[in-house]
Amino acid sequence: MSRLLEIENLRVEIPALTGAAPILEGVDIGLDRGEKLGIVGESGCGKSMTALAIMGLLPGAARATGAIRLDGRDLLATSEREMQGIRGRRIAMVFQEPMTALNPVKTIGAQIAESLILHLRLPKAQAAERARALLDRVGLPGPRFSLDLYPHQLSGGQRQRVVIAIALACGPDVLIADEPTTALDVTIQAQILDLLEDLVAEMGMALVLITHDLGVVEETCERMMVMYAGRVVESGRTADVFAHMAHPYTRGLFAASPRSALLTSAREPSGRKRRLAAIPGQVPDPRARPPGCAFAPRCPRAQDDCRAAPPPLAPLGAPGRADHAAACLHPHPPSGMAGDVAASAEGAR
């Protein structure tokens, strides 16, 4: 059975003087229409690289191997010319920074109409009509939000709505949203996420939501993937992963988010204010990754075998949770969540 988007054993490396530096290794993704997949991880773990690899827009020297199939067609083997017909038409992208993702010297109407004219060969008048309808749909109704407005006349949230309208103009099959709410106000974040969710349901797209906010994934996506140092370390249905965070890195991410603090009491028994648990250390440089599990140097549970070879992503085998897999030799056993995370956060400190 051919899925809408299928990524198999994707590996991206950048040639360096000291030998090729792998940016991504063994990434597998399967996505069907209407599905929402969340990819989480801290900065530099390969989330955005995965997105760029799907778009075929990896930076100059980077080389991708493996397979990225859209409806069975391998995008890695597709010519740049043909990719131009796929980008924007079948796969679209929403960016993190709405302040810079719009061209400052063109009206928003022209920017939305552009891809309609390019991909669907609509005449100008019709493209303008569709642009108007799209703006209405993303919550920027006329006549207040005219097509003749320039980006600097809009607020950040309004601009992100325009960016979404541009991405959706041609009715893509896959929408990749790279940190779409990171640069926005908290109050606007929820609105934009709701809008994305509605649109995905309405248009039957598949959504890849890239974020470092576990809360966003929990609310929006039915499946999730945690990435660390270019590898998938835990994946499965969001509910399963949240019920049992098996990989120590997933737990670390959760413990470091303000949400975990809400689950525990804000003050410790001693009365001292509880602080968020940062994961000590940082993501290793792709040119100098440790031979074993890349997370081992920062992991409270690491043992000698962790440092020998990178553990494969293996199903945890819990009954009824077939999809749930983790790349860890010593995963956390399933147990009650909240207190458990708080405890492991203590341990990590």
Binding site: M55, L57, M83, Q84, G85, I86, R87, G88, R89, A92, M93, F95, E97, T100, A101, L102, N103, P104, E114, S115, L118, H119, V163, I166, A167
Partner: peptide, 14 residues
Amino acid sequence: KRDFVLAARCAGKS
């Protein structure tokens, strides 16, 4: 190097 150019490439422009 600006985002809107990357966005334009993502929209399939030559």
